[in-house]
Design a protein around this nucleic acid. Structure first.
Lengths: 349, 349
DNA sequence: GAGAGGTTGATAGACGTCAATCAATTTTTG
DNA sequence: CAAAAATTGATTGACGTCTATCAACCTCTC
């Protein structure tokens, strides 16, 4: 009934504990014969190393660092909160999380944060911009034996060990598909709103939108994107003019932040309301959904991403295999009805 | 740098290890003064019990049993596969999973499986039908000190410790919202297809659909549901007649299984294709999405549910708090574009 | 057949916690 | 104030693995 220990394996193989250990952790020298017998015994008994005892004995502590943008975007705040919420839980499992904030979009700050990572750190997760310097800093860390994964935005695909986050082009295509569904057999005109077009994730989403709507018949046209710098005030300023200029706008795809402004503009909008898709489930976008001013939210589920990132980092640190995060991290679609409950604290018992 | 141990706490509190231990695990008798000082020291040092060492010492093994329906539905197979896939991973963490299959919808078999659970089992997850007998069996297990959670279908809400799965009424409402989006300013006629209406989850989804479409203007009407017993052959048989009887059907909501048949019927359907929503991401529904015959899939992400279930069971077994699963388990909406990649094996390195 | 090198067995002390025991001390009670 | 009860300290042996050391053995080679 009890699960087999390495001692059981050794007995079954007819060798000493020491030899079984040498095979398991391949150290020392072992004859081919003994190796075979031990491996056979492991297979026969279905032995699985007790990770917890192993970690204890190795006095293995994991130290993972998250380098996250700071800013007043709710999304970054949610990401930050997700990491902070995991920290105490993970501590009980010998995993220590630390967070360093950098100003959003500031590559130099990101590089500095990467360079500042100490040698006691096992793995780093960074939300970075795609820059030569950042790539170099990631490579430098890797050379020091510290794996780096990218989070949310896949900067430095050549240097990072893994990327945990959605594919933004896919997200844009998804938005396009929803637009198409909403337009049905009619044509239409979609206004994309970005933060800055230089941001690769915004560009990717926009490209995805174009992918999805290319060749729809009757045509759903896409206006040139307006850029509001992720700021609600600019949204309040620029969007009404865009809407006035083209009263036939039938869809809005808000690619970045500043959705508080979008919400207000839509609330005062006269005439048929454009079908509106926004990104990230935040207090504002929740409000938009439940109030019926936003129709769909495309979300990347930051809490889930953080948990996934920790899993991958553990795998990297222990040298075990991991599942490709791209497999299960896809943009989620929320409408009013399937929006998850907010917050919620642990249920006692 | 090193994280504090209980020994450090004891020293800081100026008491012996034994006393600190008595406070931590509240056993034995401790004076109020000592208790205060130890708790203060715990807070000061930020001590967190090392779960892994604790489990090791307690020689704590968890045994969790999954009682799952067997059947040729891809969804059940996916659920089964998800548990099987987690098993070896969890073993390394002292968690042993076992699976027992029961014929779908067979309450007696479920009761038998519940009754057969041994005392070495710490917690049970069951996909059960809602029946008095099942509820009684769950209560009996609980009385023996074995917690039971329900999975996928919330049978026995009064007796189970937790429910891990989507709210089916919410799922139905979500489908209704998508129908509304797809119909835009036009009215329409939706045909719901259920397995058996007696199944409470199917009934809930249908109710949800009615919730969401009640009062739409212009009206989206809902036909009486046809029942295909979750069988593709009945689907092939009954659906074409239903479609022929009402050529103005503009939407199909397939609530249960048998979608292979639906796919074939739609492939041969003449005239404008109804907007089609199905449940569960399976090989068939994937095929339907990518081929453009299905428009949306509502999925409950069985793999994620299984992981969540294990987390909750661990919490129940250790007596710690858990987050309400309802918080993050909501029906997912997939369209062609955001459908996750299938399968995928671990990535080495 | 002596020495070198490869292989094996036995053993021991961590790691942090649990669970238990026993003696010593303090506090409470009658 | 003595006896009883409550509290405390000190210690010990698990749990399963890691890591290291040392002696013993085997198989070559020169």
């Amino acid at each position: 009934m009890r699960r087999p220990t390495l001692n059981d394996v050794a007995k079954a193989a007819g060798v000493s504990y020491a030899t079984a250990d040498r095979v398991l952790n391949n150290r020392g020298s072992v004859s081919e014969k003994s190796r075979k017998r031990v491996q056979q015994a492991i297979a026969d008994l279905g032995y699985v190393r007790d990770q917890q005892a192993a970690n204890l004995s190795r006095r293995r502590q994991f130290h993972f660092r998250f380098i996250l943008p700071i800013g007043n975007h709710s999304f970054f705040q949610a990401l930050h909160a997700a990491v902070a919420e995991e920290a105490p839980v993970q501590r009980g499992d010998r995993v220590n999380l630390s967070i360093v904030g950098t100003p959003a979009l500031d590559a130099d700050a990101q590089v500095a944060a990467l360079d500042a990572v100490g040698d006691d750190c096992d793995c780093v997760a960074v939300v970075a911009t795609r820059t030569e310097r950042v790539t170099a800093a990631i490579r430098a860390l890797d050379a020091r034996g510290i794996g780096v994964i990218t989070l949310v935005s896949d900067a430095a695909p050549e240097a990072r060990r893994a990327y945990v986050g959605i594919d933004n082009r896919t997200a844009g295509r998804t938005a396009g598909r929803l637009m198409e569904i909403a337009h049905g057999p009619r044509g239409g005109l979609v206004l994309p709103i970005v933060g800055v077009l230089q941001a690769s994730d915004h560009r990717d989403r926009l490209d995805g939108l174009h992918d999805a709507l290319a060749g729809t018949l009757p045509a759903i046209e896409i206006l040139p994107a307006i850029s509001v710098q992720d700021r609600a005030d600019l949204m309040r300023d620029m969007l009404p003019r865009a809407l006035a200029a083209r009263p036939d706008i039938s869809g809005i795809y808000s690619i970045g932040a500043g959705n508080r402004g979008l919400l207000e503009v839509l609330a005062h909008h006269r005439g048929p309301r454009p079908f509106t898709i926004v990104h990230e489930l935040t207090p504002v976008t929740r409000e938009g959904l439940s109030g019926g001013l936003f129709d769909a939210v495309i979300d990347q589920k930051p809490a889930q991403e953080v948990r996934r990132a920790i899993e991958v980092m553990k795998a990297i640190a222990t040298g075990t295999a991991w599942r490709d995060p791209a497999r299960d991290i896809t943009p989620a679609i929320y409408v009013k009805e399937n929006m998850p409950l907010e917050g919620g604290s642990p249920t006692a018992h």
